[in-house]
Design a protein around this nucleic acid. Sequence first.
DNA 1: CCAATCCATCGATAAATGTCAATGTCAGTG
DNA 2: CACTGACATTGACATTTATCGATGGATTGG
Lengths: 124, 124
Amino acid sequence: MSVHNGLMTIAVTTTPATLTACCTPAGHPAMSEETASSLAAQFKAIADPNRLRMVSIISSSENAEACVCDITEPLNLGQSTVSHHLKILVDAGVLTREKRGVWAYYSLVPGALDSLAAALTGRS
Amino acid sequence: MSVHNGLMTIAVTTTPATLTACCTPAGHPAMSEETASSLAAQFKAIADPNRLRMVSIISSSENAEACVCDITEPLNLGQSTVSHHLKILVDAGVLTREKRGVWAYYSLVPGALDSLAAALTGRS
DNA sequence: CCAATCCATCGATAAATGTCAATGTCAGTG
DNA sequence: CACTGACATTGACATTTATCGATGGATTGG
């Protein structure tokens, strides 16, 4: 038998549950600490209302890119705050930064969000 | 013209970019603050290494459920800490709690992670 | 009824996070 | 060259978060 329910595909041994004891050992090979930390870091990057809206604004923009001043006003945030959030998204691999002249244009990294979504649905 | 790149599907007007000015108005209807906060709250729940591993442990367990003591040891966390994290996941709608006798069994809410993944890929 | 076990809640604490104002940096302009 | 505008970086601050120990509640076994 084998189950495949996101985050983990694993063989399941049907051991009779001991009723007088808890703590079933179960199929041990769960997610490693390394992959958990790596995944959590990426999710943490998008786990913020303003950063989610930034990604939304960027993806709904003309050329799927936006500069800081495009985001400051609709989000009602200071320029410094927007810059800080964008850096977090870039460091997490969600956005890329391209400086053209005075402006810095941010755009989505292709497939970044999809690979995150895949980690949740299970199809890696 | 219309783009559909996750998080947003929107009509795009091809306005010639003014080179001497930044801050393109773009297609305004980005993600609302309410949906952003709601989504961010759910992502924040899974944006933690230990909570990700908890979900993994639960989904890879015998009956796709686990109690607190099943999680305490492999994660090397105190019982109180595990209970706290599980509560966060329950409050976020990711897990459900069912008390049977002395033990509390946690299991995945069907479709919870998939709907989160869908918010990233765009197919709502 | 008493003791033991599993779990939730509370209080405390150190660390991380979101935000802003101030300053620094760099490119374009007069 | 001095100035302006866009952005990044820094410092500070309040809030949130992750973790633990201790306590309390509920259930099972003697």
